[in-house]
Nucleic acid binder design. Structure first.
Lengths: 267, 267
DNA sequence: TCAGAAACGATCAAAATCAATCATAAAATT
DNA sequence: AATTTTATGATTGATTTTGATCGTTTCTGA
């Protein structure tokens, strides 16, 4: 067996299991342990994996991330204050007992903080949101069936016959990658697939986007702007964008970012 | 078992329960207590957990779980060592890549510890199991759609049209309230409803019950004993019960509970 | 307070793993 | 074809890890 082939096997093995032993690979490749050690050492200096006593482990620690997915987290922290202010307004729209749908996303995730003292009927395809609400609220929580995608923390099924059909929401809350006159845009086809299903189950769509999203464009159009009943954004929105939204007949709610608590602003 | 793998298990265990004992981990990892002490000391200086007398605790404060199911947790601690030994045998039946179904329950939940270093395709109606596997394993995780019941940590839908139908498992692992010649018994009608759906999606049923369950009777019969392919229990099972199981044509696996460390048994 | 139990730290021997070396086989070069 | 280079496997001794033991400390319950 050639060196490259062994390396391929080693790297693929290290992806599958958090740690692999020298012996495992030696057996797998029918090479001697000495050779495997050299291979691992070589891959280690190339940064393809990390060498540990007894074997090797993946460079990306696949392990516990408090919520789900590192990607989810970094993106979560950007514009966190804006997103939080927007989320507060979103929750303010809800009355006790309402049935609502929350589509997964970093902005909509912020809603959980304000939902903890509420009692609603929530359907969400976000595993992270469901987890948080189950633990920290009195709301009833419903999820669609399907596989859990760690990166986006989304539950998604390729099938049409899931319980999503049996849920009806007064409102559906969703974020997006970008908004323009052409409609609501997303970049991930996977996400769109799940969103489409939910959209049909709600009367009103409420879009949660920070003001930077009006400048962003993305590749895939989720739905036309007219389908959206309300957009909630922050006070960084431009007059042009404001007009664009209102021309489309969409209600606009602008959340003040610094206003909330600790009004110790420099004023 | 290798150092990294042990560390993974320890961290995953400390996350699930606020505090874990040295013995628990020693049993879980089949390593000596001395080694676990060293591991904990090492993880302590790395700041991954906090070392306390008798074991370790999560570095993050226990985090109030007002509704996360206290019932679930207390019941979990009863017969924990037996349940864990049984769960170990259950996971040992699985081969890499297998598609399996895990029905929610306190005994089956113990399987997650041994699954953390495996890569399987898991379908489960237990929110707690799904949560743990998503965070601490590389297995693919699929859940049925429905409402989340906090008390049992179960996802349940009254509808028939969920994605459960689209999942097939080589084996289904389940616990139960009681076992007798009449069949497998449960007390909660809600649980039965969800279990019935899953049972039809698996070739083999594997029943995980500690030996006390053979004496317990319950009101509702889930399925006849003949439907079960394998029963895994602990070494407290009586000869009569053993015979009863074998007469029904069910394979019996007896997990040794105290076998692992400190073989200072009275011989 | 005291005795027994449990947990701890230190120590040592055994086992596992590693690094270094060398001989051989394969590959590449001349 | 001859020779150099490289890769591999085996061996040996060093290093690290592990498990068991023992004496000490800490906890627990009477």
């Amino acid at each position: 067996m050639h060196e490259r082939e062994r390396h391929r096997i080693i790297l693929s093995a290290v992806q599958e299991k958090p740690v692999i032993t020298i012996q495992d690979i030696a057996e797998l490749t029918e090479a001697s342990e000495a050779t495997i050690r050299r291979d691992i050492a070589s891959l280690h200096v190339k940064g393809k994996l990390r060498r540990v006593r007894g074997g090797a482990e993946a460079v990306h620690p696949p392990q516990l991330t408090p919520l789900a997915g590192r990607h989810f987290h970094v993106s979560e922290s950007e514009n966190a204050d804006k997103k939080r202010a927007i989320a507060r307004e979103a929750v303010a729209l809800c009355e006790e007992g309402d049935a609502i749908i929350i589509n997964g996303g970093t902005t909509t995730f912020q809603m959980v903080h304000f939902l903890s003292s509420r009692r609603l009927q929530v359907m969400t395809n976000s595993f992270a949101i469901a987890e948080h609400l189950v633990k920290n609220s009195k709301s009833s929580v419903t999820v669609p069936g399907g596989a859990i995608y760690r990166e986006q923390s989304i539950i998604l099924s390729p099938f049409d016959n899931d319980v999503t059909r049996n849920f009806y929401g007064k409102r559906m809350f969703m974020g997006s990658q970008g908004v323009g006159p052409f409609g609501v845009m997303e970049s991930d086809a996977l996400i769109i697939q799940g969103e489409q299903k939910l959209i049909n189950q709600a009367d009103e769509l409420v879009l949660l986007v920070d003001s930077t999203k009006f400048a962003r464009r993305s590749s895939l159009i989720l739905c036309p702007l007219q389908r959206v009943a309300t957009i909630i954004t922050d006070d960084g929105i431009s007059d042009a964008d404001r007009k664009m939204v209102e021309d489309a007949g969409v209600q606009l709610i602008v959340a003040k970012v610094n206003q909330t608590r600790n009004s110790v602003s420099v004023a």
